[in-house]
Amino acid sequence: MADQTELKRDLWKRMAKSPFLMIGLTEGGHSEPLTAQLDEDQVDTIWFFIGKDNRLAKGGAATAEFVSKGHDYFASLSGRVQVQNDRAMIDKLWSRPVEAWFPGGKEDPNLALLRFDIDDAELWEADMSIAGKLKMLFGGKIEPSEEGSHAKVATTAG
């Protein structure tokens, strides 16, 4: 079973490999898939390039859900989003994949940089043993030692 520090470190490592999250405002409406732009210098902050007309652009309380590429790590994040069109940050996070969505480049009139500040998170790692996987496959009882790891954290900093 992993400890909290290890679970938090795994979150950032796994998001770097598969940076796709479902994110939405908590006041209602559906979440939508966005690509996270990670800045290792900023703990508990995830950035997204969005259109100014995106429903998240109005800002407010938000939640984001992450499932790792291997479907063995899960995170539920809550915090606040706001548009923060910091030119230095746009330059730092800009990439060819982002440019594909904004034909006008960094000067595209619809470009907005969304900042998601994480207030707290729940993290799960499904690190089930071989015995646990066999039990699950054939309907046996999964023991607590075979479940994996779970943590409620106030910061995602390792």
Rank of each mutant, 00 (worst) to 15 (best):
Ser95Gly: 00
Val81Met: 06
Ala100Asn: 10
Thr45Tyr: 05
Thr35His: 11
Leu34Tyr: 08
Asp119Trp: 00
Ala64Asn: 13
Ser78Glu: 11
Ile130Arg: 15
Ala16Cys: 04
Leu93His: 02
Asp41Cys: 09
Lys13Asn: 13
Arg80Ile: 01
Ala88Leu: 08
Gly29Ala: 04
Gln42Asn: 11
Leu56Met: 10
Gly158Thr: 09
Leu25Phe: 03
Pro109Tyr: 05
Ile90Arg: 01
Pro103Arg: 13
Arg14Ala: 10
Lys17Ile: 07
Trp12Gly: 01
Asp91His: 06
Tyr73Cys: 00
Ser18Arg: 14
Ile142Thr: 13
Gly51Asn: 14
Ala57Glu: 08
Leu77Trp: 01
Lys141Glu: 15
Ala154Met: 10
Gly28Glu: 08
Trp47Phe: 15
Asp119Ser: 12
Phe20Asp: 15
Gly139Gln: 08
Ala75Val: 06
Ala64Pro: 08
Lys133Cys: 14
Lys141Asn: 13
Ser145Thr: 14
Lys152His: 14
Thr63Lys: 13
Phe116Pro: 02
Lys152Thr: 11
Leu11Met: 07
Thr63Ala: 15
Leu34Phe: 09
Val153Met: 05
Val67Tyr: 08
Asp86Ala: 12
Gly139Asn: 09
Arg14Lys: 15
Asp127Val: 08
Glu99Leu: 10
Asp120Gly: 00
Ser78Cys: 01
Lys152Trp: 12
Ile50Pro: 04
Thr5Met: 13
Asp86Gly: 12
Ser68Thr: 03
Ala64Asp: 07
Lys13Ala: 15
Gln37Ser: 13
Lys52Glu: 05
Phe102Ala: 05
Lys135Asn: 10
Ala157Leu: 03
Arg9His: 14
Thr35Pro: 08
Leu113Ser: 07
Ser78Leu: 00
Ala100Phe: 09
Ile50Arg: 08
Ile50Phe: 04
Gly104Gln: 11
Ala57Leu: 05
Asn110Lys: 14
Trp94Lys: 04
Gln42Pro: 07
Phe66His: 06
Glu147Asn: 09
Leu114Trp: 10
Lys92Val: 07
Val83Arg: 05
Glu40Val: 13
Ala157Trp: 11
Gly79Pro: 02
Leu123Gln: 02
Glu27Asp: 11
Asp91Tyr: 04
Trp47Tyr: 15
Asp44Ser: 11
Ile118Ser: 02
Trp47Pro: 06
Arg87Gly: 10
Gln42Met: 13
Phe20His: 15
Lys141Ile: 12
Ala154Cys: 02
Pro144Leu: 13
Thr35Asp: 12
Pro97Cys: 04
